[in-house]
Structures are given as structure tokens and as C-alpha cells.
Design a binder for these strands. Structure first.
Lengths: 192, 192
DNA sequence: GTAAGAACTTGTACTCGGTCCAGGTTTGGG
DNA sequence: CCCAAACCTGGACCGAGTACAAGTTCTTAC
């Protein structure tokens, strides 16, 4: 890894941690991109060369995390039913994000403007997950694949919504697991 | 209905139809709020007093449609299983939106910026639907209610995504119906 | 070691969405 | 007919995001 790459990663992390600190202190809407850039010792333009939007600085994954996530996708067991494997992946991901998710959830609660883009944050995982699913269920058509994906996303979203970030993280993992189990079993059966 | 209200509704409809015409001609990103306001013979400020955002002018419901939707919610049969009733509601809503949905879908395809807010458009129905669901399943806890709601939304979203707006609208209704049936039955069972 | 060139940063200027407000106009009720 | 409330308007303002030209720093090939 050359000097250039190392510097880039360092800059990325500086900007991100600075941003999270400021936003944590003052709230998302009360911090401008200028504030973040200035405090991180970088220009506004540079900020936008690292993050596609102000929201992205809250939701983007660290390159390390991306690598771990890809590994999890690769080394996923193939002998279990799809929905179980999907649940494992989700729990895996949840553990991967344990550091930042409580903060993110707190931010979501206090500034509704972020909620919209939170949806978009999940979309980052979508293409790879879809490809994985396609490999995993070669006989399913596109609509079914999308449906499985979107249902799983909905379950995870529900877990995030329902979770109180002051509760221990274990509680969140339970929620993810529960929601996926319920969704997997089908809402039509569970209700009168 | 007084003159004031009638004028307001007329203005709402003028702005909306003007906006849809322009956006349809030039694309969402190539039309500014100024353009819309000017063409509708109204000021920019007034535009924002009618619509909360530029996206809203594409997705907001006509007051008439809102009334019809509320009616559908009220007069919903209570003797069928919840998921079936929910499916009926969705199909009802889909028929209600038959006029504009093809256009909306075409816009979604061509300008990805709209996709984000499309999610938010569904959120408009959420509070009332949630209340309806709560009345319908008094013994379910909040998380379960959310899960049912979000799963249904995911199914509908999937149907919208999968639908080609050049296909007849009947095809879309089928997709909605199919997606809700599959999601209701549970993705865990349908897959290996 | 150095020179050419790619990659990165920066300031500036611009567009556009969205908010705020003060003042003018219209409408409805009494 | 008149007053108060509701409505519309222009203008000023803020912040996100983009474009670009000029400057700086790293890489690489010689």
C-alpha cells in the first residue's frame, strides 16, 4: 500500500471521525459541511471528493468494514436454507456495525431529515447481496429475488426502528433475528 | 365549500398538472421549481406553500384521492384475514393511482434522484395504515405491527420496481397481488 | 536523482432547493 | 361596508452540491 493510499485512508478517517464528533455534539442539521471540512483541516471540495453527500459521512462504510463484509459474503455456508443464511449474514453485518450503529440510531431519532437517506444506506449492500442471492437461488426469477431481498431489508429496518440505542447491543441482535424469523415465516400465517 | 377553498384546490391542481407536464417533457432534473411556478402563474414561495418539496409535487395525493383512500380504509371488511384485507387495500390504492403511476414510474426510471423520495411517498400512508392495523390486530405488539406494515410496503415496492410502465395496468395489479401473496406466505418457505 | 505526468487538493463561482419575513391583496363574517 | 384572517408575493438569505482552473504532492520510468 503506497503512501498515497495510506494518506487517503487517513484523510477519510479524519473527516469521518471529525464529522461524527461534531454531529454528535450539535446534531446533524446544526453542522454544515463547511464546519466539518474546516474542523478536519480540509476544504469543502475535498469533503465532497470523499463523500457523495452530507448524509454519506454518517452511513458510508470504512474500507476495512467493506472488506470484512465481502469476506462474510464469500465464506457464507451453502448448506443451510437461504433464509437462514441471509439471517446469518444480517447478524454478521450487525456485529460489524456495532461501533457506529447506536450513534447512527440516535441521530436518526433526532433529525428526521436523515431518515430518508437511511433507506439509501441499505441500498449500498443491495447489488452484491442480490448477486449472492442470484447465485444461491439459480432457479428463482428476478421478481422473486427482489422480493426476498426487500422483505429481508424490511425486517432489518423494522429491527432498527424498534431498537432503543440505549439498550445493550445484544438486544438489537435479538430484534434482527426475531424480525427476520417472523418475516421469513410470513405475516399471513401469524395473524388472524 | 367556500370560494377560498375552491380557489386553493384549483391552484393546487394547476400547479400539479403544470409540474407534471413540464417534468414529463424535460425530465425531473431539468425542470426547476422556478420553471414550474412561472408556468403555473404563481410565485416560488407559493409553490412551497402547496408542496413541501419539489418531489412532493410528483407524489402528493389529490385531496379527492385522499378522501377515497380514507373511505377505503373505513369501509374495509373485517371478516377476512388481515393479510388478505391488506392486499385488498393495496389493490384498491393501486387502482386509485392508475392515472399517475405509469408516469411516476417512468420518471423514477429516468432520474435516480427521485427514487430516494419515492420511499418517502409511501410513508405518507403509514400512520393511518398503522392505526388501522392496530385496530385490526389488538393483541399484536408494536414491533409485529411494524413488521407487517414494512413487509407489505416491501412487497408493493417490489411490484412497482418490477413493473414496466408500458405494460397494461392490469399487469401491475397482478404483480402487486403476487408479491403480497409471496411475501405473506413467507420467503423462508418458498426457497430451498 | 530527476523529470514528466498522474492523482489529489484548493478556492472560486455558480445553480438550485428550501426558509424566512415584511408588506400588499383578497376573502369571509359580522 | 369594514375589519381581521388568510393568502400571495418579492427579496434576502442559507446550505448542499457541481464545475473548473490552478496549484501541490506523489509515482514512475528513465
Amino acid at each position: 500500500m503506497g503512501l498515497r493510499e495510506r494518506k487517503k485512508l487517513a484523510a477519510w478517517r479524519t473527516i469521518r471521525s471529525t464529522a461524527l464528533r461534531l454531529i454528535n455534539e450539535r446534531g446533524f442539521d446544526a453542522v454544515s459541511v463547511e464546519d466539518i471540512a474546516a474542523e478536519a483541516g480540509v476544504s469543502r471540495t475535498t469533503f465532497f471528493s470523499y463523500f457523495a453527500s452530507k448524509e454519506a459521512v454518517v452511513f458510508d462504510l470504512d474500507p476495512d468494514e467493506v472488506r470484512q463484509w465481502r469476506d462474510a459474503l464469500e465464506n457464507c455456508r451453502t448448506d443451510t436454507p437461504v433464509w437462514e443464511a441471509l439471517t446469518d449474514l444480517a447478524l454478521n453485518l450487525a456485529r460489524l456495525l456495532a461501533d457506529r450503529l447506536p450513534l447512527q440510531k440516535r441521530l436518526l431519532e433526532q433529525s428526521p431529515g436523515l431518515c430518508r437517506s437511511a433507506r439509501g444506506a441499505c441500498d449500498g449492500f443491495e447489488p452484491e447481496l442480490r448477486e449472492w442471492l442470484g447465485r444461491r437461488c439459480p432457479d428463482a426469477d428476478d421478481v422473486r429475488i427482489s422480493l426476498i431481498l426487500n422483505t429481508a431489508m424490511a425486517a432489518i429496518t423494522t429491527a432498527v426502528d424498534a431498537w432503543d440505542p440505549d439498550q445493550p447491543y445484544e438486544r438489537f441482535l435479538e430484534l434482527v433475528s426475531d424480525c427476520l424469523r417472523w418475516a421469513g415465516a410470513g405475516p399471513a400465517r401469524a395473524t388472524s
